[in-house]
Amino acid sequence: MDKQTGIAEVVESIPRGATIAIGGSSLSRKPMGMVRALAARGQGDYTLVVDVGGPDVDLLLGCGKVAKVIYAFVGFEVMGLAPHFRRARESGSVEFEEWTEYTVMAGLDATVKGVPFLPTHAGLATDLMAVNHSFRTMRDPFEGEEIVAVPALRPDFALIHANLADHQGNAVILGDGHVDVLCAKAARHTILSAERIVSSEEIQRYGREVQVHRVHVEGVVEMPWGAHFSGCAPYYRADLGHVQEYLLAARDPAEWDRYRERFVTDRPDDYLDALGGMETLVGRLDV
């Protein structure tokens, strides 16, 4: 089945209040093209599910599209804290639920396996157990020890950016898969963007690098530089210059409005133009 679609259709298909899992990690292979489109035109009130978040969560928060965030981490690493995440956490304007890296994986995996929860020791003797109201503790029925029950996470949508995909939704991820495959399997609807759409014959040459399989995928959008300003290994690096521009703009409401006007769009071509075009990006970030 040909699952190729356009970014406008993707935004349209995601209803207000949807729970959206976002792939990638930190500044690596975030589906930023789709995120930007949702930030520009999405219906909003989303619940976001991320393992290691950064520009994805922060941009959607900064554009007022988020009702709740489930996260293990949101930040810009050594570049700094995530400004809109920080503001929203401190003002209490959005609901937050702090999880951990493995428990987000376990929650998605529970959905994949069709079980209500998965057990772990992670979280015990920390304050997460007090602030995360989704976690429960229970008695291990075999040994009687106290363990954490991580409830199944069932996203309505998963957004993932891949290096290559075919029109049926098989996708090659050449770098770290992060939690993308779990997101793709656990979500009711998984949408891929890819640097390039290639034929199904060509995709087979990648063998085990075809990490996402078409039976889990509903839509495919071709989007060169679709992870920018995060990186997409081994094609291009995270754009730290742009991260800096983003962080500076986020400090001031007027600057932030200007940033949004310039860069937050559902038209990928306009975005690339605003960055000075593809050739500029190749010169700065291509590896």
Partner: peptide, 13 residues
């Protein structure tokens, strides 16, 4: 607001 517990609960258990 800092960054979130990340994988530290896993390490420290």
């Amino acid at each position: 607001a800092l960054v979130g517990a990340r994988g530290i609960p896993e390490d420290t258990s």
